[in-house]
Design a protein around this nucleic acid. Structure first.
Length: 561
RNA sequence: UGUCCGAUAGUGUAAUUGGCAACACGACUGUCUCUGGAUCAGUAAAGUCUAGGUUCGAGCCCUAGUCGGACAACCA
């Protein structure tokens, strides 16, 4: 490939934000510096949607040899907590990113206050005594101008005195606000004298009781970016309408002016992504916690067995654009499968057992067979598994009356037992109610795995567990991330809780290879044909608990039946 | 009857900035004497929301529509 082609290919993969950045670099803007930031509010745990933003912001910094800050947007103390700060840091690190500076919007409260005083002095801000209802009403509607507040033209001196009073705690919550004086007739609602400060007598998780007035997002965000020398302030599409205000503050205060760039947030099919709703699930104990494997939180997905690598690949795959979209969950599952295929050891397990007896296999005999741990990685080595007369197989792998394209076991049919022999089904035994309780087979000793060429073929291979050499395990099966039929369309009288799939967790008693016991918590396995599992952190030697990490299409439904 | 943003195979993202519409997932077909829900190979599938215009040439530029999203918290 010629150099030109390589160049062309690289250029091809640029997303629109990278294009902006490269243009800025070639124009020598910001002295060719690239500095981004990830600015979560510490009011909940990070979810897969944040992962997209994290990968973007940290990824841009890395790509252009720049920096990326972690800044907590902690301007609303009533919703925030240090618990969230800690979890956010843990999740970002787990995803594999390091921030260059750790900052808090609350670090800038003093500076923000001084700037507010400056705006008052410039007659660009005023204290408004109106009630919340009045302010809201006077703001008007998008296609009609609002009406100006009675307090809009107070003197600078009175404004300074009242704003100082607000800061000193002279007034109760909600009695007054500081507003910017911009344009009550602006077609952009955010420019109709936005609120800068509100009174909140509330303890802040970092500044304690120092402040009783707190800046609003719009007033704090751009200036925080500016203070940190951010060059490209990347955020989601809903902030697009806020950009004129972002620009207004930087321009009016004559400070470093970062460029706000918006992109479409991640929507995943069947997945609840609203922080508010996730919080509700946790508070109402619909889930075991923020890290419940059914949650779309980063820690939940982690516990489900996803790897950071897989999530980063997913973020890369879905791309960055301004168009609203819904990504299919199967794409994310593809990404884990791709990664886990390379690193997860294979093992055998039977979730829904049925007894298989080999009539022509000698009693009281056992045999050691060799199984590969990972066909995609020789270094993973091999393990010994025991074979004997009585086995457990998957109920699903036997059909009394086989359907057309059924290649597994049925009366008179022959399959390979993985790593072992061909077995042919000779008869079945049923209980009084007609349920199959035993499958009787004969095996062909000539067909031992790895023994070489064989005259005849079988179409199916099934997994199995030796009944006398296995361990019973309680297996928790989790369906996909919390399934929602209509993500945001709760019908009248219903909340989203009525629409979530509450059957997505079930406990099954299955059988597993004893080798699993040797491994530590949170090790990942691919169970033959059953998908990927992750030994949960709640496991003990007596009670193994598995989180299913990937549902291979509808295998879940089959197992359930 | 407001402002801003968007529209490209089923889904998502590209298209060297005006030059042969491509990539991934999915679907389908085939391959494989050790999972036939795996792997590997291959195939189909959009002429770019609509109508005009500029141009040798338009997914890209212009005009007017259509559809979709965001915005009226003392949340972020």
């Amino acid at each position: 490939m010629s150099e030109n082609n390589i160049e062309a290919n690289e250029k091809k993969s640029l997303n629109f934000i990278e294009e902006i950045i490269e243009q800025d670099i070639s124009n020598n803007k910001n002295s060719q510096r690239v500095h981004t930031r990830f600015p979560p509010e510490p009011n909940g745990y990070l979810h897969i949607g944040h992962a997209k933003s994290i990968c973007l912001n940290f990824g841009l910094a890395k790509k252009y040899n720049g920096k990326c800050n972690l800044r907590f947007d902690d301007t609303n103390p009533v919703k925030e907590d240090v618990e969230y700060v800690d979890s956010i840091k843990e999740d970002i690190e787990w995803l594999g990113f390091k921030w260059d500076g750790e900052y808090y919007a609350s670090d800038y409260f003093d500076q923000l206050y001084l700037w507010a005083v400056e705006l008052v002095k410039k007659e660009l801000a005023y204290v408004d005594d109106s009630s919340q209802e009045e302010i809201s009403k006077n703001r008007g509607v998008p296609n009609k101008p609002g009406t100006e507040s009675l307090y809009r033209n107070r003197s600078v001196e009175e404004n300074l005195r009242l704003f100082k009073g607000m800061k000193n705690g002279d007034f109760p919550d909600g009695s007054r606000v500081l507003r910017a004086k911009i344009d009550m007739a602006s077609p952009n609602m955010h420019m109709r004298d936005p609120i800068l400060y509100r009174i909140l007598h509330s303890n802040h998780h970092r500044t304690g009781n120092k402040w009783c007035i707190y800046p609003m997002y719009d007033y704090a965000h751009g200036q925080s970016d500016s203070i940190e020398g951010i060059t490209h302030s990347v955020c989601t599409l809903e902030f697009e309408v806020h950009r004129p205000l972002y620009d207004w503050f930087c321009k009016t205060l004559e400070i470093h002016h970062p460029q706000q760039i918006e992109f479409a947030r991640l929507n995943l099919s069947y997945t609840i992504m609203s922080k508010r709703k996730l919080l509700q699930l946790v508070q109402e104990k619909q889930v075991m916690g923020w890290d419940d494997p059914r949650m779309p939180t980063i820690c939940g997905i982690r516990r489900r067995g996803y790897t950071p690598e897989a999530i980063r690949n997913f973020a890369e795959t879905i791309g960055i654009a301004k168009r609203n979209n819904v990504i299919d969950l199967s794409l994310m599952e593809f990404c884990v499968r791709e990664d886990l295929n390379k690193i997860a050891n294979r093992t055998m397990a039977v979730l829904n057992p049925i007894k298989l007896i080999i009539d022509n296999y000698p009693e009281n005999t056992q045999e050691e067979l060799e199984a590969v741990n990972n066909p995609e990685n020789e270094l993973a080595g091999k393990r010994k598994i025991m074979f004997s007369k009585e086995l457990w197989i998957e109920r699903d792998d036997f059909m009394e009356i086989p359907s057309k394209n059924y290649f597994r076991l049925y009366p008179g049919g022959e399959v390979r037992l993985k790593y072992a022999y061909f077995v042919k089904c000779e008869s079945i035994i049923k209980d009084n109610e007609g349920n199959i309780i035993e499958i009787h087979c004969t095996y062909d000793p000539e067909t031992k795995s790895g023994s070489g060429v064989i005259q005849r073929k079988v179409k199916g291979t099934i997994h199995w567990i030796s009944a006398n050499h296995c361990r019973k395990a309680e297996i928790r099966l989790f369906d996909r991330l919390f399934n929602v039929t209509e993500p945001d369309e709760a019908e009248e009288g219903k909340t989203f809780l009525d629409n979530i799939n509450k059957e997505s967790l079930s406990v099954i008693n299955g059988y597993i290879e004893p080798t699993l016991l040797d491994d530590s918590v949170l090790t990942k396995y691919q169970f033959e044909r059953l998908g990927y599992f992750c030994i949960d952190k709640d496991s003990t030697a007596e009670k193994l608990v598995f989180n299913r990490t990937v549902t291979l299409k509808d295998s879940w439904n089959k197992i359930q039946k």
